[in-house]
Design a binder for these strands. Structure first.
Lengths: 151, 151
DNA sequence: TTTGTTTTGGTGTTAGAACATCTAAGTTTG
DNA sequence: CAAACTTAGATGTTCTAACACCAAAACAAA
C-alpha cells in the first residue's frame, strides 16, 4: 500500500521527505513482522541479530565490541543481551587467552539449531520470506538507493 | 557506505536479505540522527511524530486512535506520549462533545513554535535535511520500492 | 429496559534502549 | 619503573516500547 494511504496523509509530500518517512515506516513494519515470527521461539529481534552474526563468523567467536560493531542497532546493550543468550544456552562465553579484558562469544549447537528452525519456519510462513514481492533487480536497486541515502 | 562494509559482513548476501537488512540498518541510522537533532529541543522522536501529525490536521484536532493510525511506529503508546506533550504544553486535550469516550488532541501555539524552530535548525544543519544526496527521481524510486516491499 | 458486545482511552508490567559511570586490564609516556 | 591514558566489558538508572488488561461509554439485541 502506498505510504500516503498507510499514514492517511492528505497533503502530498516532497519526494525526499516521503522517502525518509517511508524508510522509517517500512522498518517499523518489518520489525513488527519479524518480532511476531520470532515470538514462538522465545527470542527477541536483537537477540536473533546477535545469533546470526555469531553464526556468520562461526566457528570463530567474536568479542562483545566486535558483535556491537556488526549489529543493525548499535545503541543496544550487547553485554546484557549476550548474558540472556548465555542463560538460554544459545551462546558460550570464554575469556580471551591473551587479553584478559576480552570475552569471546561463540554460538552453541543449540543456538545453531534454533537458527535453522527459525529459518525453516520463516520459509514456510508467507510462501517465502518477507519482501519477496520485489524482483531480484529491484531488491538490488533498493539496497543501492539506501546506501546512497545514508551518504 | 555499502551495507556490507558497515556491518563488516564477509559473505555476500542474497539480494532480498540485503535489502531487508539495509532497510533496518538505514532506519536505525536515521532514527539516531533524528534523535540527535531533536535532543536540544527536549523532545523525543515519537513525540515529534505526533506533533507533526497534529500540525498536519490543524486547526482540527484528532482523537487518540486517529493519531495512532497515522503514526510511523504504531506500537507506541499514544495516551502516554500525548500526556507528556500536554505536560510540556505542546498539545491541548479537550473531551469530545458527543462521544464522551473520546478525547480530541490539538497542537498548541507553543507546539507550532517548536516545530518551526526544529525545522529551521534541521535546515541549517547539514546543508539541508538528511538524505538529500538522492536526486528527486531516486527519492521517488526509493519510496516506490519500499511500498512494493511491504506488499 | 436489561444484557451483551464493541469502541475508546488509560494503566500495570516487563524487557530493553539510552545514557552515564565504573572496574580491571592493557598501553603509552616520562 | 610509576603515572597517565586508553580499551573492554559490566552495571546502575531512567525512560519507553510492547504487550496485556481494565473501565467507562456507546451501541446492539433480546
Amino acid at each position: 500500500m502506498k505510504l500516503e494511504l498507510e499514514l492517511k496523509s492528505i497533503k502530498p509530500m516532497p519526494a525526499h521527505q516521503r522517502a525518509m518517512l517511508n524508510i522509517l515506516f517500512t522498518a517499523s513494519w518489518l520489525d513488527c513482522t519479524i518480532t511476531r515470527q520470532l515470538r514462538p521461539f522465545g527470542i527477541t529481534s536483537p537477540q536473533y541479530n546477535i545469533l546470526r552474526i555469531l553464526n556468520g563468523s562461526a566457528p570463530k567467536g567474536l568479542s562483545v565490541l566486535d558483535i556491537k560493531s556488526r549489529m543493525l542497532d548499535r545503541s543496544s546493550n550487547v553485554s546484557r543481551l549476550v548474558e540472556k543468550l548465555r542463560i538460554s544456552e544459545h551462546v558460550e562465553r570464554v575469556p580471551h587467552g591473551k587479553d584478559r579484558r576480552m570475552v569471546i562469544v561463540t554460538i552453541s549447537d543449540a543456538g545453531k539449531k534454533l537458527l535453522s528452525e527459525i529459518e525453516q519456519a520463516r520459509f514456510m510462513d508467507g510462501n517465502g520470506s518477507t519482501g519477496n514481492k520485489l524482483s531480484e533487480a529491484e531488491a538490488l536497486d533498493l539496497a543501492l538507493l539506501l546506501d546512497k541515502f545514508r551518504e
